[in-house]
Design a binder for these strands. Structure first.
Lengths: 341, 341
DNA sequence: TTGAAAGCGTTACCAA
DNA sequence: TTGGTAACGCTTTCAA
């Protein structure tokens, strides 16, 4: 910048003004032109560390989630990074093993980089000490799937998990199913709890028997991408004891796919004998051998939305903005695992 | 830091020394203790922007790939971020639509943040202007899958795609298959070219007829996660004309899964009539309805390895380190799409 | 073993 | 419309 100033015979301050305040730039058109030209010739690039140090704004936002390997966390990360990029923000993506201490550590590190805002998928349990502190301090934070989990107010975007459950059940009822099984690993997360309750409520309201709850005895699958065997064994054991007690299964895509596999092994036809319904509309549902009826939760849009909320808060000087909870809609995607073609 | 210095009655320089140079710290044990205690009490956190500005090192490394949504780019990103984290480095992950200009833009942005190193999955084509410049300047760069693509020397980690092809064919031959079909979209990437050539060579060496090349007429699938229909239509058209001309199909997991779907629709049994072989060992191969024989390329390890290479180069003052090309091994993972259980 | 000074590249603030 | 000064928080270098 000082090189440009020297060559243009003006002060470095003026150069700074011209190079940044594109809109309300009060420099004369002549000098402006000259400076821009020189900047191009000399290949000027701003030093973002210096800018951050001086201005207190880094144009960095953090994204923290327990593993962005697949599914929702990943789609949201992509949606966020893309949107942020368009607005000239950089995203630092980091993942942790779903515990509160790791979460705290990551938050502190991002704070050291003086991030301007944080989008976070809170860990399933724990005190969330640092997160709470940030929010209390009026720091821009948007949580994902946090509304049912956190005991403090905060901007949040969550899919309507009740709606997910209702969409699943309704579709099955409409296609003539009545004996519905819910299959899941031991429910650690609040998501399953909410969804399952919605399903029970809906069935009760329709005067139908409650769902068959199939619980797979396995510690929750933290590392996907490894091995399906433990899950397969668990599901097989589970389904064998309940044979013939259901004509439809509800789960998320991964479990639904494996359950379908096991059902077909035992000579069961899908959807002839049993309908199988997933959730997440993941790659498994789309590209799998059996196109899987699923629920799409528009996760990439959630990423973009999160950036929007964050922006509003970052622009605000005083933190007098009321907290907003956005419920993002879900869509039923019908495929051949629930309807005969 | 100056707060600590004031309260301890010593100079800020001393505090800096104590807080950083943990190993060769020459401060007296007493002051050291005192400073550490005060730092804890006052909740001292270093300002990384300031440190970066002054020292010229940011402890940030960049990761650039065309979409980190699924598969290799994603696993590598995860492997990299995890390893980097352990070594106190932050990774800025960014993705682009696989063209050279976007790549250049991202590199410049990361350079503005004065990153210390770059791990990059180069775009399929283009001049790679900025990347070339970085490497020429001796800046620490590790490419992924770049060795067959770039016309300049550079540290690189690539799976052995020839080996991938050979593992695929050998397994099919060993399980009694002879009429092998290669199914793919129009091959834009160098990966397919290398692999396919290895397959042709191997078959020729064994005195067997060349593979049947099945090309799906569709522009390359850039956005996964959208819709399988265009691909399905393409594959269906392709397979119909070649019915009965093959007893095994080779592809990557996504196409393999869809091809299997279509084959089964037409009453073909897998692996009874046709073996189907994927590559990538993705979630589709592991959790899909049909467990898919595939090739694992240990992508998370590649991420960790990339960090290692980068570290070596970042530690080096002078860039006299010879360039290294690491070929990461592949493993055949046999599942039921190629062998009767 | 500690202190002093300088400065990294930029922007905020006020004076001209 | 432009210039000057100071400062952001830290590390480097050298002197005490």
């Amino acid at each position: 910048m000082s090189d440009i100033a020297r060559q243009a015979g003006i002060h470095v301050t003026t150069v700074s003004q011209i190079l940044n305040r594109r809109s309300n730039c009060w420099a004369s058109e002549a000098t402006r032109r000259h400076v821009m030209k020189l900047a191009g010739e000399l290949g000027y690039r701003p030093n973002l560390a210096a800018r951050s140090l001086r201005s207190g704004r880094s144009h960095v936002i953090g994204y923290i989630s327990p593993g962005f390997g697949t599914g929702s966390p990943n789609s949201r990360a992509m949606g966020l990074t893309d949107t942020a990029m368009q607005h000239d923000y950089t995203v630092i993506v980091s993942s942790h093993p779903n515990d509160s201490e790791s979460e705290d550590r990551l938050i502190r590190r991002l704070a050291d980089r003086s991030m301007d805002g944080l989008v976070i998928y809170p860990a399933d349990k724990g005190p969330h000490t640092e997160l709470r502190r940030l929010v209390n301090d009026g720091f821009p934070v948007v949580t994902l799937d946090g509304s049912a989990l956190l005991d403090f107010e905060c901007d949040d975007i969550s899919p309507d998990y009740q709606q997910v459950g209702r969409l699943q059940v309704r579709h099955l009822l409409e296609t003539g199913r009545r004996r519905i099984g819910l299959i899941d690993t031991i429910p650690t997360g609040r998501i399953n709890v909410i969804r399952d309750q919605a399903i029970r409520d809906l069935l009760a309201r329709e005067g139908l028997p409650p769902p068959l709850e199939l619980q797979i005895a396995i510690e929750d699958l933290q590392s996907e991408f490894v091995d399906a065997e433990p899950l397969v064994t668990g599901i097989r054991a589970c389904l064998e004891t309940q044979r013939g007690c259901f004509d439809a299964l509800i789960s998320h895509d991964t479990l639904a796919s494996l359950a379908a596999r096991i059902l077909m092994e035992t000579g069961c036809r899908i959807p002839g004998d049993v309908s199988v319904m997933g959730a997440g509309n993941s790659i498994l549902a789309i590209y799998g051998l059996l196109p899987l009826t699923s629920i799409s939760t528009a996760d990439d849009q959630a990423g973009a939305l999160a950036f929007g909320l964050l922006m509003d808060r970052m622009k605000q000087k005083r933190a007098n903005l009321p907290f907003r909870r956005i419920v993002s809609p879900s869509n039923l995607i019908v495929r051949s695992s629930t309807i005969r073609t």
